[in-house]
């Protein structure tokens, strides 16, 4: 009797886990499978092909969007990494009360829904009469990327021996020199993690980009507008590629953070 119920619990446990994983991954798996399907129809499998991937690189719209995406992601990463790192160093040196207030203020944008951030940024750009395009998209990306860098760098600063900066001064460094000769190398792992996170967030953003740019589209926006017209298999291929790139980036970030904890 006891053994039977234990077996039932075990079966339930595994079924439950399988269902959760299926919900999460089957749709993506189906999409990846369809991206290799020779048929345009979703209903039949007519053979394996790379054609849809090849077609991606023939489409001007997609290539243009790829360029926008990478340009914005790289620029936003560069700027937000500098801002986030300097911001973290500044807050770390502040009195506790002010620092925690500023930290909480920086944390808020990470929790507000993207749509709120997107709409409010759009309103601000319109109010300031800045035409919506690549430039405004970049500014928006810098705004939401910076807190990620900040929160990746902060723990490194907290772990750092507070005497390191003073030791650099003691040995003859000006404050600025001490910053890049000692502080920066010491917190570099956090800075790199932050930059990778920012790049990932920028690559896969849709909602905020959608509201803050009209003329220039990034890849997510292309997928979205294509989907409204009826999905082609090239979009499956594009989504698959984006999924894999972002998965790879997040795996790297995760691995870095777990290595640091050791």
């Amino acid at each position: 009797m006891v053994r039977k119920s234990r077996g039932a619990v075990k079966a339930f446990k595994w079924t439950y886990l399988a269902l959760v994983l299926a919900f999460l991954y089957v749709p993506i798996a189906v999409m990846i499978a369809l991206s290799f399907n020779a048929s345009v129809s979703r209903a039949e499998w007519t053979g394996f092909t790379f054609d849809w991937y090849a077609k991606l690189f023939e489409s001007d719209a997609i290539l243009a969007a790829l360029e926008v995406t990478i340009e914005v992601a790289l620029a936003a990463t560069a700027v937000s990494t500098v801002l986030g790192t300097l911001g973290a160093i500044g807050m770390h040196a502040m009195k506790k009360g002010w620092a925690s207030l500023l930290l909480n203020l920086s944390y808020l944008p990470m929790t507000t829904p993207d749509i709120v951030t997107g709409v409010s940024l759009m309103l601000m750009f319109i109010f300031m009469k800045i035409p919506l395009g690549k430039g405004t998209m970049l500014m928006a990306h810098i705004a939401f990327d910076t807190p990620y860098v900040l929160f990746a760098v902060m723990p490194r600063l907290k772990q750092m021996n507070p005497n390191l900066y003073e030791a650099a001064l003691d040995l003859g460094c000006h404050p600025l020199k001490a910053l890049y000769k000692v502080i920066l190398p010491e917190i570099l792992p956090g800075v790199v993690t932050g930059a990778l996170l920012a790049f990932t967030m920028s690559l896969d953003d849709f909602v905020i980009s959608y509201f803050t740019s009209s003329t220039d589209q990034n890849l997510s926006m292309v997928v979205y507008s294509a989907a409204r017209r009826g999905v082609e298999p090239t979009m499956y291929a594009l989504s698959t590629l984006m999924f894999l790139v972002i998965l790879a980036l997040l795996l790297i970030v995760n691995r870095r953070s777990s290595l640091e904890k050791m």
Partner: peptide, 20 residues
């Protein structure tokens, strides 16, 4: 006179060596 212009050097409590 800031620390970097004093003819003084310090051995800190937890050494504060540069691990990089």
């Amino acid at each position: 006179v800031p620390p970097y212009r004093r003819r003084i050097n310090t051995v800190f409590q937890k050494y504060a060596l540069f691990s990089h």
